[in-house]
Design a protein around this nucleic acid. Structure first.
Length: 303
DNA sequence: ATCCAGGAAAGGA
DNA sequence: TCCTTTCATGGA
């Protein structure tokens, strides 16, 4: 990690293969996103780490540097707390990752060649908070993205906290402690299906009991982490791999049945039918150890 | 109104 | 382990 503090502003030096427009382009693509706001290349967001809640503005200056300001006197006095905020930003943008070999591989890959050029410097944007990532995975099952974003917003606005600044609210994702107290009927009025409500409340209970945490999963091998996630009700192969990819940052995570992935491959290869699973397995051979990056770039072609 | 979609669970072999 | 069926609901 390369960062510094100048007059209360955190200055993060970005890795070589970071592209400002590619990453901001991804973040601004969904107007109904409720977990951050972006205006003039400045991201405003509450970064919550346990009890610590910092309302920050992340100013992406160029491809080399990000400046992080704390708003509302939310700058933690203790250095280790500020360090946690910086950690979050590193996780969010995958700043510790060296993408050189991904782009090297993508140059000659029939599927990745175009997206890797078009979106060069895009990182797999993470969801560092495990509960948020799991909820987003479960929420997004079976429905289109716009409905998924609407569901997330309703869920967050009903059970999350917010911090106000300049007349605007910035949301904190609901805590698993709080959601663990709910019953499925509590979630009925936000158009969440009973099953999804049960899944989310079940996950919240596991986390509240200490039976499931980011730390535990991070200390496992990819296969073991996948297995423990699959044991949880409501989490199938798609959700497990989605979370392994976006929260735990296992690069080999690969939601191979994802419809977006299928459609992207169909589009790039100009096929008149969907590729079969066997075909995708074959096509993904060159992606070894970069499956999650490959998937993310292919998704970006569609959305 | 009818059908399809895109995930997971449950049941069966 | 690997199918097939069922489920619930929004969108075309």
């Amino acid at each position: 990690m390369t960062w510094d503090e100048v007059n209360g502003v955190i200055v993060i030096t970005l890795p070589d293969d970071f592209d400002k427009d590619a990453n901001l382009g991804y973040l601004t693509r969904e107007k109904n996103e409720c977990m951050y706001a972006i205006e003039n290349d400045v991201i405003t967001k509450v970064i919550a780490i346990g009890e610590i809640r910092s309302l920050v503005q992340i100013n992406v200056m160029n491809n080399k540097q990000m400046n992080v300001h704390f708003l509302n006197d939310s700058r933690p006095i203790e250095k280790w707390k500020r360090e946690e905020v910086v950690n979050y930003i590193y996780e969010w943008f995958d700043l510790n990752n060296d993408l050189t070999s991904f782009f090297e591989m993508a140059k000659t890959d029939p599927l990745l060649k175009m997206p890797a050029q078009k979106f060069y410097g895009l990182r797999v944007i993470g969801i560092p908070d495990l509960f948020e990532a799991l909820c987003w995975g479960v929420l997004g099952q079976q429905i289109n993205l716009s409905f998924a974003y609407s569901l997330k917003r309703q869920f967050v606005e009903k059970y999350g906290d917010s911090v106000e600044w300049n007349g605007k609210k910035y949301w904190v994702f609901p805590s698993y402690e709080q959601i663990a107290q709910l019953t499925p009927t509590d979630l009925a009025d936000i158009k969440m299906t009973v099953k999804k409500s049960e899944y989310i409340i079940g996950i919240a209970n596991l986390m509240a009991d200490g039976a499931l945490s980011r730390e535990q999963l991070m200390n496992m091998s990819f296969k073991d982490a996948e297995k423990s996630l699959l044991k949880i009700r409501g989490i199938g192969p798609w959700t497990a791999n989605y979370v392994l990819m976006r929260c735990l940052r296992f690069q080999t995570a690969f939601p191979i049945d994802d419809v977006g992935l299928i459609n992207s491959i169909k589009l790039i290869r100009n096929m008149d039918r969907k590729p079969t699973k066997d075909e995708i397995v074959e096509l993904s051979c060159p992606w070894k150890n970069w499956e999650s990056y490959a998937t993310f770039y292919l998704w970006r072609v569609l959305y």
